[in-house]
Amino acid sequence: MPELEDVSYSEAECVAAVGAYYEFLTKMYLDESEVIYPPKGGWPSIAQADPEVLARFGKTDKVVSLLAHLPYIRNTGGIEDGIQATPECPFADWDDIFTYIPRKRM
C-alpha cells in the first residue's frame, strides 16, 4: 500500500470512483434512473455559481470543481423520505443544494 505522501489527487479518478460506486448501488437497491450525471462542463449551478455564493460554503476551488463534476443520487423524497446512504443520512445532491442556497440566507 502506498504511503500517504505517495498518493496524488485526480479529479477524474474521484469522479470515476464515485460513479462506479453508484453503479454498484444500482445493482443492490437503487434504480438506474436515480443516478444523475452532470452535463459536459459540470453542473451549471455549481460551475457557474456566483463567487459570493461559493464563499458561503467555505470550499476550496478544487472541492467546488469536484462537486461540479460528480454524479449525484436524485433525492426527490427530501431528508426524511429520500434515498439513504446510511440510516437517517440521505445522499447530498450538491447541484440541488447550490441551486437552492442562493435563494436562502446563510
Rank of each mutant, 00 (worst) to 15 (best):
V35Y: 02
V35F: 01
V35I: 12
V35H: 00
I36H: 04
I36A: 04
I36Y: 02
I36T: 06
Y37T: 13
Y37N: 10
Y37A: 11
P38G: 03
P38V: 07
P38N: 05
P39L: 09
P39Y: 08
P39K: 06
P39G: 08
K40Q: 10
K40I: 08
K40G: 05
K40N: 09
K40W: 05
K40C: 06
K40D: 06
G41S: 03
G41M: 05
G41K: 04
G42H: 01
G42P: 03
G42F: 02
G42V: 04
G42L: 05
G42D: 01
W43D: 00
W43Y: 10
W43F: 07
W43Q: 00
P44A: 03
P44F: 03
P44L: 05
P44H: 04
P44N: 05
P44T: 04
S45Y: 01
S45G: 13
S45E: 10
S45H: 07
I46W: 00
I46C: 01
I46G: 00
Q48M: 12
Q48W: 10
A49M: 06
D50K: 06
D50E: 10
D50Q: 06
D50W: 01
P51C: 10
P51T: 10
E52A: 15
E52W: 11
E52M: 13
E52H: 14
E52P: 14
E52Y: 12
V53E: 00
V53S: 04
V53A: 08
V53R: 01
L54V: 15
L54H: 11
A55H: 13
A55Q: 13
A55R: 13
A55T: 14
R56S: 09
R56F: 04
R56P: 00
R56Q: 10
R56C: 09
R56V: 07
F57N: 06
F57A: 10
F57H: 08
G58H: 08
G58V: 09
G58E: 05
K59A: 13
K59H: 14
K59Y: 14
T60S: 12
T60Y: 05
T60E: 07
T60Q: 08
T60D: 10
D61L: 15
D61C: 14
D61W: 12
K62E: 15
K62D: 13
K62G: 14
K62W: 12
K62T: 15
V63Q: 14
V64S: 06
V64K: 03
V64D: 01
V64G: 06
V64A: 10
V64N: 06
S65R: 08
S65Q: 11
S65F: 08
S65H: 09
S65N: 11
L66Q: 02
L66G: 07
L66H: 03
L66F: 10
L66Y: 06
